Amino acid sequence: MSQLQPRVALFVTCLVDLYRPTVGFAAIRLLEAAGCTVEVPEAQTCCGQPAYNSGDRVTAKEVARGVVDAFLPYDYVVVPSGSCGGMISHHYANLFEDDPEYRGKAEALGARTFELVAFLSDVRGAAALPVEYQGSVTYHDSCSGLRELGVKAQPRAMLARIKGVELREMAEPETCCGFGGTFCVKYPEISTRMVSDKTRDIAATGAGTLLAGDLGCLLNMAGRLKRENSPVQVRHVAEVLAGMTGDLPAIGEAK
């Protein structure tokens, strides 16, 4: 691997591609500022997590094989989502228990796959860009990013270096928002109760902006906040770190 100018493949994720492409552009800006050569493989698809979580191992394996083939040639794979990052780094190898060749490839890919902010902080030692974000923010720790990938201190440390940011912690920042991929579809009443508890915790901070590193969580919480007529803005942390807020509407707001 080239450590001075690593060749990084950005795994965009389905939700970023469909709902918030600016997160992908923010990720590219941050990675290039950290000295990386960034490419977005055209062959990428879904990471396969919806099928995997639903018990459809056949489809998940087929999807994973394509991702492995597309991303293995790169020095690193970076994902602006702990959920998809966790799927690739922690679960792909298990799909190929009966296929030694692809199990080895999946393990190699998993070892070089990182969540965006963790990669910037832990691998590249990136400093904050000379950007500003005026206002108070609170940060939600997504389940996969926190529990599978250990993403906790990194985004807070990078936010602390952004001029104008005041971090106000929730009482329970590590509590699930109730999204959980297909969980919110299978158990809507439980999911609604969980996200309602979460929005109360958010409101109690008095913060003007909610940040997180997973768009699924952000869409879920933004939807609930909007239904509650909350003034809290919702943004992906990469957008703030890259200085790409400006006239960009918050998540859940009309363009």
Rank of each mutant, 00 (worst) to 15 (best):
A26K: 01
T13I: 00
R168Q: 07
S83I: 02
A160I: 04
T245P: 04
S81A: 09
S144I: 03
A70R: 08
F119Q: 02
V117R: 07
R168Y: 08
D99H: 00
K163M: 04
D201Q: 05
A64M: 02
D99V: 02
Q154V: 06
T37I: 10
V195W: 13
L225H: 09
E42Y: 15
R7Y: 09
Y76M: 00
G206E: 06
L215A: 00
I251S: 05
R224F: 05
I251Q: 04
A93C: 02
I162E: 07
R168V: 01
P50Q: 09
R112V: 11
V8H: 05
T113R: 03
R156G: 07
A222R: 01
L31Y: 00
C143M: 10
A64W: 15
F11G: 01
D141W: 13
L72G: 04
E189V: 04
E101R: 14
D247I: 04
Y76F: 14
D99S: 02
G243L: 02
D69S: 06
E239W: 08
T245G: 03
D141L: 09
D214T: 02
Q233D: 14
L72E: 13
R65E: 12
M221S: 03
S121Y: 15
A242D: 10
A204G: 03
G55S: 07
G223D: 06
G125R: 09
L109I: 03
D122S: 12
V16Y: 12
A238Y: 15
A157Y: 14
E148Q: 13
A70C: 06
V123R: 15
I88M: 10
E239N: 01
K255G: 10
A254N: 14
A126F: 01
H140F: 11
S121F: 13
C36W: 15
R29Y: 05
G180W: 14
L15T: 12
G164D: 06
Y139I: 03
C176W: 12
A118H: 14
M221L: 11
E115C: 01
L167Y: 14
L120T: 01
Q49P: 13
G252K: 05
V123Q: 15
V16C: 06
G82T: 10
G246I: 08
G82Y: 14
K105C: 06
V12I: 10
K198W: 00
Q154H: 10
V240K: 02
G150L: 05
L219G: 08
L120H: 05
P155E: 11
V151H: 03
F183N: 07
K198M: 00
V12K: 12
N53M: 01
E39Y: 15
E97F: 08
C184H: 15
C14F: 07
C47G: 13
Y133S: 00
R193I: 00
P41D: 10
L95E: 07
D197F: 11
M194K: 02
I162P: 10
A118C: 04
R65F: 12
G223T: 08
C46N: 09
L210F: 11
E101S: 11
V123G: 06
D99L: 01
V68D: 01
L72D: 09
V232S: 07
S230D: 04
M1S: 13
I251M: 07
H140P: 02
F183T: 06
R224Q: 13
I28M: 12
P41K: 12
K152F: 12
T113W: 09
G206H: 00
F114E: 02
G110S: 02
A222M: 04
P249R: 09
D56T: 00
L225P: 11
L120A: 02
E253Y: 13
G35K: 11
V23W: 04
E101I: 13
